[in-house]
Amino acid sequence: MTIRLGCQTPKCTYSVPSADLFPTVIAHARKAESAGFDCAFLADHLYQPPTLGPPEGPRMEAYTALGALATATEKIQLSALVTSNTFRNPALLAKVVTALDVASGGRAVLGIGAGWFELEHNQYGYEFGTVTDRLERLDEALQIITPMLRGERPTFDGKWYHVESAINEPRLRDDLPILLGGGGEKKTFALAARFADHLNILCGVSDLPRKLDALEERCAEVGRDRSTLETSYQAFVFIDENGDHARQLQHDFLLNRGVDLSKATDTERAAATARQICGTPDDVAEQLQTRVLDQGIDGIVVNLVANGDQPGILELTGRALRPLVDA
Rank of each mutant, 00 (worst) to 15 (best):
Q77K: 14
Q77D: 13
Q77I: 08
L78P: 08
S79Y: 11
S79Q: 12
S79D: 09
A80V: 11
A80K: 01
L81A: 11
V82L: 14
V82E: 09
T83I: 12
T83F: 12
T83A: 15
S84C: 12
S84L: 11
S84Y: 10
N85W: 09
N85P: 07
N85M: 09
T86I: 10
T86K: 07
T86F: 07
T86N: 14
T86P: 06
F87T: 03
R88V: 13
R88M: 13
N89V: 09
N89T: 08
N89Y: 14
A91M: 02
A91P: 02
L92G: 09
L93S: 03
L93T: 01
L93W: 01
L93H: 03
L93G: 03
L93Q: 02
A94M: 11
A94Q: 08
K95L: 02
K95F: 04
K95H: 05
T98V: 01
A99D: 15
A99E: 14
D101A: 14
D101T: 15
D101H: 14
A103N: 12
A103H: 11
A103I: 12
S104P: 00
S104L: 00
G105Y: 08
G105Q: 09
G105C: 06
G106H: 11
R107P: 04
R107F: 03
A108K: 15
V109F: 07
V109G: 09
L110A: 05
L110R: 00
L110W: 05
G111S: 04
G111Y: 04
I112H: 08
I112W: 06
I112L: 10
G113T: 08
G113N: 06
G113V: 01
A114F: 06
G115F: 04
G115D: 02
W116P: 00
F117K: 00
F117G: 01
F117A: 05
F117I: 00
E118C: 01
E118L: 03
E118T: 01
L119T: 10
L119V: 08
L119H: 07
E120A: 11
E120G: 10
H121S: 00
H121R: 00
N122T: 15
N122G: 12
Q123M: 15
Q123R: 15
Q123Y: 13
Q123T: 12
Y124D: 10
Y126C: 06
Y126G: 01
E127W: 13
E127Q: 12
E127H: 15
F128I: 05
F128C: 03
G129C: 01
G129V: 00
G129M: 02
T130Q: 09
T130K: 10
T132C: 13
T132R: 13
T132H: 15
T132D: 15
T132L: 15
D133N: 02
D133Y: 05
D133S: 04
R134M: 03
L135S: 06
L135R: 07
L135K: 05
E136T: 11
E136D: 13
E136W: 04
E136N: 12
E136H: 12
R137G: 08
L138S: 07
L138D: 06
L138T: 07
L138C: 05
D139T: 11
D139F: 03
D139H: 10
D139M: 02
D139V: 05
E140Q: 11
E140V: 09
E140Y: 11
A141F: 05
A141I: 07
L142E: 02
L142W: 02
I144R: 06
